[in-house]
Simulated scan of single mutants.
Amino acid sequence: MGVQGLLPFVSSASTEVSLEDYRGQTLACDASVWLHRGAISCARELAEGEPAVGFLRFPLRMIALLKRHGVRPLIAFLGPNQ
Protein backbone atom coordinates (compact mmCIF):
# COMPACT_ATOMS: atom_id res chain seq x y z
CA MET A 1 0.00 0.00 0.00
CA GLY A 2 1.19 3.55 -0.58
CA VAL A 3 3.64 4.80 -3.15
CA GLN A 4 6.26 2.18 -3.86
CA GLY A 5 9.81 3.54 -3.59
CA LEU A 6 8.71 6.87 -2.09
CA LEU A 7 10.82 6.74 1.10
CA PRO A 8 14.13 6.00 -0.66
CA PHE A 9 13.29 8.70 -3.22
CA VAL A 10 12.77 11.42 -0.59
CA SER A 11 15.40 10.21 1.90
CA SER A 12 18.01 12.76 0.81
CA ALA A 13 15.52 15.58 1.46
CA SER A 14 14.33 14.33 4.86
CA THR A 15 15.70 14.69 8.37
CA GLU A 16 14.83 12.75 11.51
CA VAL A 17 13.41 15.04 14.19
CA SER A 18 11.87 14.81 17.65
CA LEU A 19 8.42 16.03 18.61
CA GLU A 20 10.23 18.32 21.05
CA ASP A 21 11.51 20.23 18.00
CA TYR A 22 7.91 21.35 17.39
CA ARG A 23 7.09 22.41 20.97
CA GLY A 24 4.89 25.53 20.91
CA GLN A 25 3.90 25.01 17.27
CA THR A 26 0.75 23.72 15.59
CA LEU A 27 0.81 20.49 13.59
CA ALA A 28 -1.93 19.77 11.04
CA CYS A 29 -2.96 16.10 10.97
CA ASP A 30 -5.28 14.26 8.60
CA ALA A 31 -7.95 12.73 10.85
CA SER A 32 -9.03 10.12 8.30
CA VAL A 33 -5.60 8.44 8.41
CA TRP A 34 -5.72 8.16 12.20
CA LEU A 35 -9.35 6.96 12.18
CA HIS A 36 -8.51 4.36 9.54
CA ARG A 37 -5.58 3.14 11.64
CA GLY A 38 -7.80 3.00 14.72
CA ALA A 39 -10.48 1.02 12.88
CA ILE A 40 -8.18 -2.01 12.90
CA SER A 41 -8.93 -2.46 16.61
CA CYS A 42 -12.65 -2.95 16.01
CA ALA A 43 -12.81 -4.08 12.39
CA ARG A 44 -15.26 -6.92 13.03
CA GLU A 45 -17.73 -4.68 14.87
CA LEU A 46 -17.56 -2.06 12.14
CA ALA A 47 -17.97 -4.65 9.39
CA GLU A 48 -21.01 -6.19 11.10
CA GLY A 49 -22.62 -2.83 11.87
CA GLU A 50 -22.28 -3.28 15.63
CA PRO A 51 -21.67 -0.33 17.96
CA ALA A 52 -17.96 0.45 18.15
CA VAL A 53 -15.86 3.24 19.58
CA GLY A 54 -12.48 1.50 19.50
CA PHE A 55 -11.51 3.37 16.34
CA LEU A 56 -11.23 6.53 18.46
CA ARG A 57 -8.49 5.16 20.74
CA PHE A 58 -5.64 5.62 18.26
CA PRO A 59 -6.45 9.23 17.27
CA LEU A 60 -6.95 10.17 20.92
CA ARG A 61 -3.59 8.63 21.83
CA MET A 62 -1.87 10.56 19.02
CA ILE A 63 -3.48 13.81 20.14
CA ALA A 64 -2.38 13.14 23.75
CA LEU A 65 1.16 12.38 22.54
CA LEU A 66 1.37 15.66 20.65
CA LYS A 67 0.00 17.64 23.59
CA ARG A 68 2.39 15.92 26.00
CA HIS A 69 5.26 17.26 23.88
CA GLY A 70 3.79 20.76 23.76
CA VAL A 71 2.59 20.49 20.16
CA ARG A 72 -0.89 21.84 19.38
CA PRO A 73 -2.75 19.43 17.05
CA LEU A 74 -4.95 20.85 14.30
CA ILE A 75 -7.12 17.95 13.18
CA ALA A 76 -8.31 18.23 9.59
CA PHE A 77 -11.01 16.12 7.99
CA LEU A 78 -10.03 16.07 4.33
CA GLY A 79 -12.45 14.66 1.84
CA PRO A 80 -13.56 14.80 -1.75
CA ASN A 81 -14.38 18.19 -3.24
CA GLN A 82 -18.06 18.32 -4.04
Score class of each variant (00 low, 15 high):
Ser41Met: 11
Val10Ser: 10
Phe9Pro: 00
Phe77Ala: 12
Phe77Gly: 14
Arg68Phe: 00
Ala28Lys: 10
Leu65Thr: 12
Asp21Ser: 11
Ala64Asp: 15
Phe77Ser: 13
Arg37Ile: 11
Val71Lys: 00
Val10Gln: 11
Arg57Ser: 09
Ala43Gln: 08
Thr15Gln: 12
Val17Leu: 02
Gln25His: 06
Pro73Tyr: 05
Cys29His: 00
Ser41Pro: 02
Trp34Asn: 09
Cys29Lys: 01
Trp34Ile: 03
Leu56Gly: 04
Ala76Tyr: 07
Pro59Ala: 03
Arg68Lys: 06
Arg72Asn: 02
Ala39Ser: 15
Ile63Leu: 11
Gln82Ala: 15
Leu78Phe: 08
Ala64Thr: 14
Trp34Lys: 01
Met62Asp: 08
Gly54Ser: 07
Arg37Leu: 15
Ala39His: 12
Ala28Ile: 05
Asp30Gln: 06
Phe58Arg: 08
Pro8Ser: 12
Leu78Arg: 03
Val17Cys: 01
Arg44Phe: 00
Ile40Pro: 00
Met1His: 06
Glu16Lys: 10
Leu65Asp: 03
Ser11Pro: 06
Gln25Cys: 06
Gly70Pro: 06
Ala52Tyr: 00
Arg44Leu: 11
Glu45Trp: 01
Gln25Gly: 01
Glu50Leu: 14
Leu27Thr: 08
Gln4Ile: 11
Thr26Ser: 15
Ile63Trp: 04
Val17Gly: 00
Glu16Asn: 11
Ile40Ala: 08
Ala31Asn: 13
Gly54Thr: 06
Val3Met: 05
Val3Arg: 03
Leu46Lys: 13
Leu27Asp: 15
Asp21Thr: 08
Ala31Asp: 12
Gln4His: 11
Ser11Asn: 10
Ala52Glu: 09
Pro59Met: 08
Pro8Gln: 05
Gln82Phe: 06
Asp21Ile: 05
Glu50Ile: 04
Gly54Met: 04
Arg68Pro: 00
Gly2Ala: 15
Asp21Glu: 08
Pro73Glu: 09
Glu48His: 13
His69Ile: 04
Leu56Val: 11
Ala47His: 01
Arg68Cys: 03
Arg37Asn: 12
Leu65Trp: 00
Val3Ser: 14
Gly5Ala: 07
Gly54Asp: 08
Phe55Thr: 04
Met1Phe: 02
Arg68Trp: 00
Gly2Arg: 11
Arg44Asn: 07
Leu19Ile: 07
Asp21Arg: 10
Leu6Val: 14
Met62Asn: 13
Gln25Tyr: 00
His69Gly: 03
Phe55Lys: 04
Ala64Leu: 12
Ala31His: 14
Gly70Gln: 02
Leu46Glu: 03
Ser18Asp: 13
Ala76Val: 15
Gly49Gln: 03
Ala47Ile: 06
Gly2Met: 04
Phe9Ile: 01
Ile40Trp: 02
Gly54Phe: 02
Arg44Gln: 11
Glu20Ser: 15
Leu19Val: 09
Ile63His: 09
Ala43His: 13
Gly38Asn: 01
Gln82His: 05
Val33Glu: 05
Phe77Asn: 07
Ile75Trp: 04
Arg23Glu: 14
